[in-house]
Design a protein around this nucleic acid. Structure first.
Lengths: 229, 229
DNA sequence: TCAAAAGTGTTCACCGTACACCCATGG
DNA sequence: CCATGGGTGTACGGTGAACACTTTTGA
């Protein structure tokens, strides 16, 4: 007896991408102004429909490339959203994905064609459907991740100051951190290489620039990986 | 302009349920012998297809009720699986769910009709499709959860000994724990009520029975909830 | 010389872990 | 009386959090 797959319901499956970036002060997300009904003109996560011959990961990649031109960026699956009426036009389930990218490198680019814009995460517009829930969930996940593995490689410029890194952590965790404790903690991880250059823009004294030691950084990311939920 | 939903691909969506139980010695999962092709006769997670008018959660509940008769059990979404050829007959994506139940209360019951059987998690058969991956992932999540919130209310009988609880933690974490440290840790959580009764079956001295203080227990679960990924 | 940001250590409380002996009882 | 499992406390190292002053230098 072969199960009769033909009689099962078939649905539209979508992916929605939560794209985080950081601009030296605020954690931001890339949103688009929806170009078609329903909810045309409202702010929305960038999404797309899953095709028969691709995986969800591939669909998420496809969406990311379309919006940012970025190839081969790691996207992490968050959760599937399936309320029956989440899309008023047609039953659709959507799987949320999230990723981190560097704003500077991708500010201009093909975003225009989708009216994409960066929004600070603590000043978001109302989004279509259940996209606000997705974002909230993605934030929680990002916060959690930050506590168990290093973060910043994808978000910061190649060279950055200790204060920039601290600001990033503060933006993600949404609280002030103590400068001394932060430096101690980061140094104990040994993920940074201190350069001899200084960034003189921010003060008279100037502050040292750092780079990530990518080898060590990746090790720490991978070991935190065990904890992935 | 209304987007033409009609031209998007539609797919079969399924749920697969990882049902954990504990039998005083081993962490177990409930598996069924597949009743239809493909892979008829092979061991499998219990699953079902998502209907047009229900959420994924509801579908998972439906499957759980069908298999165990259990109503209103909290099921947690794990991850969506979407490899194109994961089901050889028809493109299907599946969302994995997991839950914890008390084996004793549901040993007999309607399981027979699905040839369901409990398997120790460290002695699993080869399962159909990607079900072994789902299970591995569910185990990892369960382990993680155990480290940030109390566990056992769903898995243990109403009254249990400290050793039983410790065995449960050992089964989940897959390592031996020190008796003194374990007792200290559990007591510091204040989630247990020590009864005056003893379980005399296991030794001459007998060991005290405990119950969960459900109020405190739930508080701890809820506070660990912040950390949910 | 002074304003403004950079840089830098110590102390304390808490938590996880290692570790070993006495107790109560039924046979 | 003794074999069997039940019950109990202490010491140490590591980690996170609180906390304030000195240094550099361009204007």
């Amino acid at each position: 007896m072969l199960h009769n797959y033909q009689k099962e319901d078939k649905l539209i499956v979508a992916v929605d991408c939560i794209i985080f970036g950081f601009d030296t002060e605020n954690l931001k997300v890339l949103l688009i102004k929806r170009g078609f009904e329903p909810k045309k003109g409202n702010w929305s996560l960038m999404g797309g429909f899953l095709k028969k011959d691709e995986t969800l990961n591939e669909a998420a990649q496809r969406v990311l490339i379309k919006l940012t031109g970025l190839n081969n960026i790691y996207m992490e699956q968050l959760e599937a959203y399936s309320e029956v009426d989440r899309d008023p036009v047609e039953r659709t389930i959507s799987v949320a994905y999230s990723t981190l990218i560097n704003i500077q490198n991708h500010e201009k680019e093909p975003q225009q064609q989708y009216s994409a814009k960066w929004f600070a995460v603590d000043d978001l517009p109302k989004l279509v459907f259940d996209h606000n829930s997705m974002l909230k969930r993605a934030m929680r996940r990002l916060r959690h991740k930050t506590t168990i593995q290093p973060i910043g490689l994808e978000l910061l410029p190649e060279k950055f100051t200790m204060l920039q890194l601290q600001k990033l952590y503060e933006a993600i965790l949404n609280k002030k951190l103590d400068k001394r404790n932060f430096v101690n903690k980061i140094n104990s991880l040994k993920i940074l290489i201190k350069l001899s250059e200084k960034d003189k823009r921010s003060s008279r004294k100037g502050s040292f620039l750092y780079q990530f030691d990518q080898k060590v950084y990746q090790e720490k990311v991978t070991s935190g990986f065990d904890f992935r939920l």
